[in-house]
Structures are given as structure tokens and as C-alpha cells.
Amino acid sequence: MSDFWICIGDIHDEVARLTDIPELAQASGVIISGDLTVAKGAPAARRVIDAVAAINPVIYAQIGNMDKPEVTEFLQELGCNIHRTVAELTPSVGVMGVGTSGITPFNTPSETPDETLGAWLDETYAQASQYDATVVVVHDPPFGTKCDDLGNGVHVGSKAVRAFIEKEQPPLVLCGHIHEARSIDTIGTTTVINTGMLSAGGYAKITIEGAAVQAELCIME
């Protein structure tokens, strides 16, 4: 029997389209890859989490660069934070997160040097060694893929994220951050999905059977 999870990201306070996601209530749970808010803190993040929980109460989430750092503490209090930590999707498959983003030109609330993102990925992945497979959730997409293309051939993703994927080859990496780059790509044997903004209709459906992880990029009607 298979489990399935729904991944969304870049919500930016806009929750109306949650009700347009097929099977959201029936999913094993919901993974949020970051940017719950627009430069806001815990009260705004709570409104987003409450809206998701009204449909499906099983949530794993992390901050993006547009969330204030205090949102991590809020998510920890709820028991649903995955930034720099590991949680269980099934007894065979874990999920880990590294939120925030690399340094941007826009001075957003939660930015992290790229080398630090790489160190966090290594540290957190080491915590997941008991699982047969690990789903990796990063807000910042890997450099040089469809998932970090601004739409004009300019790539602005994380080189550290890409190096981590090339080294560890997790089955699935979920990301966001670059709204224009909603897409699915591969690095070696790793599937990479940028779901884009929730308000634009993108989400991912992750199916787990045993230790096998499959995922598809979906667009709401």
C-alpha cells in the first residue's frame, strides 16, 4: 500500500487555492517548502498553517527567505518544523529541510551564505541515516537547472544545493523560491521539483511505496 503527500510552497499569505488541490484532505500530510508569508512573522505564519490544517492537519514546514526567523520557533512549538531537522514520512522514508535562501539583492528577512546552506544540508542529511530514503526539502533550488531559471536563461539557484545533490543523490528534492521556474528536472538520479507559487496553481504529489519515492509536478485547474 502506498502513501502520498502533497508539497506546496511560496504561499506568501495567499491560501485561497488550497481548496483547489485535489486529494489534499486525503493525503498522508502536507509539506511546505518555505515562504509562508511576505516578510512577516509568527502571526501571519499561523494563519497559513491554520488554513492548511483545516483541510489536512498533518504538516511539515520550514521558513523561506521571506519569512522572519521567528517563524522557525513558531513551527517548532507546533512540532512541524523541518528546517535543519528530520521527520518521518513512513518508517522507511524520512524528510529533512533546509530553509531560508542564499543572499539576494533584496535584503529579505532570512538569507544565508551559500556555504552555510551546504553545511546545513550535510549536517541534517547525516541525521537521516536510519531511513532507507530521504526526501530533501530546500527553499533555494539547485543552480543550473530548470528549477532556478528566471525565464531568460539566467540561473540564480544555490551551487551548494547542487553540490549536495550531486554528492548524495537523494531520490527527491523539493524546492521553490524562484517563482518563474516552476518545473521538474533531474540531477543524476535525483528528481528536483520547484512547485512555484501556490497562487499560480503549482504543487507536487509524492507517492511512497516501501522505500521507493516517486513524485510529479501538478497544476491545479
Rank of each mutant, 00 (worst) to 15 (best):
M1C: 09
M1E: 15
I8E: 01
H12Q: 08
D13N: 15
E14F: 10
V15I: 15
R17S: 07
L18R: 02
I21G: 00
A25C: 10
Q26P: 09
G29F: 04
V30S: 03
V30R: 03
V30Y: 11
I32Y: 03
I32N: 00
G34K: 14
D35R: 10
D35Y: 05
L36P: 03
A39V: 13
K40P: 00
R46E: 12
R46S: 10
R46P: 00
V52Y: 02
A54T: 06
N56H: 09
P57A: 03
P57W: 05
I59S: 01
I59E: 07
Y60D: 01
Q62E: 14
Q62S: 00
I63T: 09
I63V: 15
M66G: 03
M66Q: 03
M66S: 13
D67R: 02
K68Q: 13
K68E: 15
E70Y: 07
T72R: 12
T72G: 01
N81S: 11
I82K: 04
H83P: 06
H83S: 00
R84F: 06
V86T: 14
E88N: 11
L89D: 06
T90G: 04
P91E: 11
V93L: 03
G97D: 02
G99M: 04
T100G: 14
T100F: 14
G102Q: 14
I103K: 05
F106T: 07
N107M: 13
T108I: 07
E111I: 09
D114Y: 14
E115G: 08
E115C: 13
L117D: 05
L117P: 01
G118D: 07
G118Q: 00
D122M: 09
T124P: 00
T124M: 11
T124A: 10
A126N: 11
A128D: 04
A128L: 07
S129V: 10
Q130M: 13
Q130W: 11
Y131Q: 02
T134C: 08
V135A: 05
V136F: 05
V137F: 06
V138S: 12
D140V: 09
D140C: 09
D140I: 09
P141W: 10
F143A: 02
F143H: 15
T145F: 14
K146F: 13
D148W: 03
L150S: 02
G151D: 01
N152K: 05
V154G: 02
V154C: 05
V154Q: 09
K159N: 02
V161W: 12
V161C: 02
V161I: 10
E166N: 04
E168D: 05
L172W: 09
L172R: 13
V173D: 01
L174I: 11
L174M: 14
C175E: 00
C175K: 08
H177V: 13
H177Y: 04
I178T: 03
I178F: 04
I178K: 03
H179F: 02
E180Y: 10
R182H: 11
R182I: 10
I184S: 06
I184E: 01
D185V: 01
I187C: 04
T190G: 06
I193K: 03
I193L: 10
T195F: 03
L198P: 00
A200W: 08
G201Q: 06
T207A: 07
I208P: 04
A211H: 13
A211W: 09
A212L: 05
A212C: 10
A212M: 12
V213N: 05
Q214V: 07
Q214M: 14
E216Q: 15
L217W: 12
M220W: 08
